[in-house]
């Protein structure tokens, strides 16, 4: 069933080949231009947040790839308020399939692959250039990191979506944590002042998506609050975030149906 749901969306989007290519292309360009900000800064300084240009590229590439995965699967969930207002949500509720799965497949937008391709290419290239010297454990981490990061961002998207059951007009509020989390994750966490670093590590685990794993992979020391070993925390944090996200989502649906909570 999952295959039919997603397959139909993929086929529909590939059927407009030219516009798919233009869309994916502009998404790719988007992430390159986002990187120009860091590139310009590193034209003026040797290290940024303690990292060189190539090391920053590892962080940026990894964060972009991870965000692209989440954006692909759950990016449109912050449009939930539109579904609530138009009544579309009601047609989804009378089907025998979990709501979250329906929304995810309904809005799957493949154009975001453009961003993923740029991110993953930058991640791999920069890892090699930065002299990544893998042990079996760090190799596994290197491979799993984009997926785990995607899991963390996905959980953030689901929470952001769930919040709209309470705050119908508050769509933008949630952007601070999803898109804001992405913005933070693309940068070395060391550049943020301690309160912000704490917020984006312990509350919104953005710095655990890319920066912390990069410290492990390239064997670098971490700043205060984000020690190198935090790079191994991605998986448990992703699982915890998903648990919270699902609880929040269920509470949101219960609120919508008026079933208490």
């Amino acid at each position: 069933m999952v295959r039919t749901l997603y397959g139909s969306r993929i086929r529909a989007q590939l059927s407009y080949r030219a516009s798919f290519a233009a869309d994916a292309g502009s998404q790719a360009l988007l992430s390159i231009i986002e990187f120009l900000e860091l590139w310009v800064i590193l034209g003026h300084v040797d290290t940024f947040g303690g990292l060189t240009l190539v090391q920053v590229m590892v962080v940026f590439g990894l964060a972009s790839a991870a965000f692209a995965i989440a954006d692909l699967a759950f990016g449109e969930i912050d449009g939930l308020s539109t579904y609530i207002r138009s009544g579309k949500l009601e047609t989804l509720l009378v089907r025998p399939v979990p709501l979250l799965l329906q929304i995810s497949s309904l809005d799957l937008s493949l154009r975001r692959l453009g961003r993923f391709v740029v991110g993953i290419a930058m991640y791999i290239t920069a890892l090699v250039l930065a002299g990544f010297d893998p042990t079996p454990a760090t190799m596994v981490l290197a491979i799993l990191a984009p997926v785990i990061g995607g899991g963390i961002f996905s959980a953030l998207f689901v929470m952001a979506g769930a919040l709209q059951f309470w705050l119908i007009d508050g769509r933008e509020f949630a952007n601070a944590f999803t898109y804001g989390g992405n913005y933070v994750a693309q940068n070395p966490a060391a550049v943020f002042a301690l309160p912000m670093r704490a917020l984006f590590t312990f509350v919104i685990p953005a710095s655990l998506v890319a920066y912390a794993p990069t410290l492990v992979l390239l064997d670098l020391p971490g700043p205060m609050l984000v020690p190198t070993w935090a790079g191994w925390l991605g998986l448990p944090v992703a699982l915890l975030a998903w648990m919270l996200a699902l609880l929040l989502w269920r509470a949101g649906v219960r609120r919508y149906t008026g079933a208490g909570g």
């Binding site: 007009d169 933008e172 943020f192």
Partner: peptide, 17 residues
């Protein structure tokens, strides 16, 4: 009003970043 408040919040968070 709610949309404006949400926008201001997000705008400020991005400003801090």
């Amino acid at each position: 009003r709610v949309a404006t408040a949400a926008g201001v919040f997000t705008n400020s968070v991005f400003g801090l970043i």
